[in-house]
Amino acid sequence: MPAFTDLLFLAFAGLTLLFGFLCVANPLSRNPVTSAMFLVLTIVSLAGLYVLLHAFFLAAVQILVYAGAVMVLFLFVIMLLDLGEEDRRKLNRVALISGTAAVLGLAGVLVRALWSAKGAAATGATLVEGNTAPLGRILFQSYVLPFEILSILLLVALVGVILLSKKELK
């Protein structure tokens, strides 16, 4: 009899893949706003998978940063750019065929790699918990320097975005 967490895993994994598919290849609508909304749903289902993996802090960060900040930015830009005429264009046959071929090739490689590594997986013993306390301890003991570099990266991104958004790019 499958455990409750396994049912939850199946539900969240299926929802993630379904929403991801609808985000990139929605057969009904090619409006970018629809894609953005399905990307939000994909991200929320991924946060569910993170909770199943006991990465609670990352699940919260995923919702806050991706579904909160990044997607609002996406929606702002979509509405700023007024992309109405885009869905009237024809799909590019060459891109569709080459995309399908590339994706099938990559999926084949991944499945084959997983198949050959089959015996190595799945320990069921004592497993780590992704609470804030152990995560913060690691972050501020072993990873202080990358953390500080990251803050500089954010500052650089901030200045760059302000410069790019100015009216004249001279």
């Binding site: 985000c23 990139v24 970018p32 894609s35 996406f74 994706v103 990559l106 991944l110």
Partner: peptide, 22 residues
């Protein structure tokens, strides 16, 4: 892996710059 494949498909096959970004 499947999610990565979906993203790759979006990057290659879609023509809208914002959807490519998604």
């Amino acid at each position: 892996g499947l999610l990565f494949c979906l993203g790759l498909f979006g990057v290659i096959a879609r023509r809208n710059l914002l959807v490519v970004y998604m």
